[in-house]
Each structure stands twice: as structure tokens, then as C-alpha cells.
Design a protein around this nucleic acid. Structure first.
Lengths: 149, 149
DNA sequence: TGGAAAACCGAGTAATAAACTAGGAATTAA
DNA sequence: TTAATTCCTAGTTTATTACTCGGTTTTCCA
């Protein structure tokens, strides 16, 4: 039950933005370099985040990306769900695309999947980019360049 | 972050066993038919469960499978981890195969992954086959044949 | 005692998804 | 005008999933 690189890279990129972009925008190239992610691939991920209203962009030379909202208003859940889709462990308990399963009424494994889904959402919705940026500050306060996320 | 069919089919098969096998063993063919799973595929999954000590088998004609332990001593976590491996959302917080990540000390996203891992394990370790068999009883008490899991 | 019913085993394969790569068009600051 | 950047679509490679296939071995039972 692993997250794909979309979720992992996407969250790293967003924490990077939370740390490095206050007011100003950051070129994707810099994020990709700092986080060691293929620039072209990250481009596709950040396009999704932009369409989800989590980042905004400035085009042209000296352009770049920044958070579309204050970091304490963006949760890890917003980011992961934008990139990974629902965090439900099986499709039948997916909030959006709940497949109409013929056995639903008599199925007991659904109770397990629902609990997993709810707990995962509880965790990711309770952590904001602000929280992670603060943790980062604690861990890396002695470093001139704060590369690692 | 979906579970594969291994975990889903495996749990269904184990609940089926919890319900249908008391003392006696059940042929894989019956489980596969009831749960609508390819028999050959399920064979591979149950082999893993057997090697993990969760089911036992009787070979030869009239042979079959049964739980290796009382249903209240087998948790959903035992089953899912046997079939899916660690339930950690990313490899770096995998209890067993924790990759030695160079950035570990400065990484903040690990806090998210650890919390998800812990909550998921908490859920699956708190539910036993006994619990699910009882839920099944409630849902299907009026049915002569209790197919659906 | 022979046949059928079962578990056991290892290899192969088709389909799907993940993780990128490639190549350019549009936009804009300097 | 040029260089730096975002934006867009499509293609490609790799890995994983979800099986299938073809047996061998074991054991009950008529």
C-alpha cells in the first residue's frame, strides 16, 4: 500500500515552496534541483497542483511558482488527494467513485477499509504545510542552505 | 494508495475460512467459488498465508485448508502484512527494510509517513477475524447460504 | 488397488500503471 | 530581441499486478 512518487515528490515540492517562497515565486528548476526530481516530471505534478488551486504561477522569464494560499491553510491531505486521488485503500470505499458493489450490503471487509480510509484522512488533514515548515526550521536551523525536505 | 488484490482476496478468503471451517478443512475450490476468485491465483495467496503460519492444510482427496489459530488470535494486520508486506506508505519508514536515506535526519515529510504507518497498523491490528465473523453473523443472519464477505 | 480429488510447485504471460522523456509553443522580464 | 520560464501533448520505458499453464505429489474412498 505504497504511495507513488507523485505524492512523495509533490509533498516535498510543496514544503520546498512553503520554505522558500514568501511573496516571490520560485522557478521549478530550483525546486527540482534541491529535491533531486526530474524537472519535466515535476512539471506535470505541479500542473495538477496548480489546477487544484494549491499553487499559482507566473509565466515568462523570472517567473515561477508560489503557494496559492498561506501555508497554514494547505493540508497534506489537500496535496496528496490532488496528486494521488482518493486515499481509500480499496475502490469500494472511495468517497467520489464508490463503485456500486453488488455485495455491499453483506460485505464485512468494507468495515476494515472504511476505518483505514478514515484514519489516513484524519492524519493527513491534521497536518499543514505550516506545521512541516516549522519542523523543518527546528531540524535545520543551523544550516545556511536548507536543501533537505 | 490502493491495496492490491492480494490483500483484498486474502482477507476475504480468511473471513470465509473463519466462517466455514470449524474443525473441518475447506477445499480451496469452494472458497474460490464463493468469493469469485481465480482458484489458481488464490492458491498462490494461500500458500503465503500457510508459510506465515496463519492457515494449515490437509493434502489429498477430501483435503483442504483451515485456520491455524482461533479466529480471535488472527488480526487483519497479520493477514495484510503477510500478503502485502509492510503497510508503510513509503519505503523509508518501512519497519523491516528501512532504506538508509541520506536525508533522513533533515527530512520532515517522514513525520507524515510515520503517522500514516502507525495509524494504519493500529487499525488493522485492532480487528480480528472473530470480529469480522461476528459482523457477518449480524448482517447475514437471515441467509441460508452466507456467500458474501 | 486404481482413480479421483485435492494440495503443492515453478515458470510464463498479458494487461496495467508508474515514472519518466521528448519536443516544442506561449509568455514575459530585461 | 533574446533568454528564461511556464505550459502542453504525446511517446517510451520499466515495473508491477494479476493472473494462466502444466504439471507433481498426496491421500481418501469405492
Amino acid at each position: 500500500m505504497r504511495l507513488s512518487t507523485k505524492g512523495r515528490y509533490g509533498l516535498k515540492a510543496m514544503v520546498d515552496l512553503a520554505i522558500h517562497s514568501q511573496d516571490k515565486q520560485i522557478a521549478l528548476r530550483h525546486i527540482a534541483e534541491r529535491q533531486d526530481i526530474s524537472e519535466h516530471y515535476l512539471e506535470q505534478l505541479i500542473a495538477v497542483l496548480r489546477k487544484s488551486g494549491l499553487v499559482k504561477s507566473v509565466r515568462g522569464a523570472q517567473g515561477g511558482y508560489s503557494l496559492a494560499l498561506p501555508p497554514d491553510e494547505i493540508t497534506v491531505g489537500d496535496i496528496l488527494r490532488a496528486l494521488e486521488g482518493s486515499l481509500a485503500p480499496v475502490a469500494c470505499v472511495d468517497d467520489e467513485f464508490a463503485e456500486n458493489c453488488a455485495e455491499w450490503d453483506y460485505c464485512v471487509t468494507k468495515f476494515v477499509w472504511q476505518k483505514i480510509r478514515d484514519k489516513v484522512n484524519e492524519v493527513v488533514d491534521s497536518i499543514t504545510l505550516q506545521d512541516l515548515a516549522e519542523e523543518h526550521e527546528k531540524l535545520n536551523c543551523d544550516k545556511e542552505y536548507m536543501y533537505y525536505i
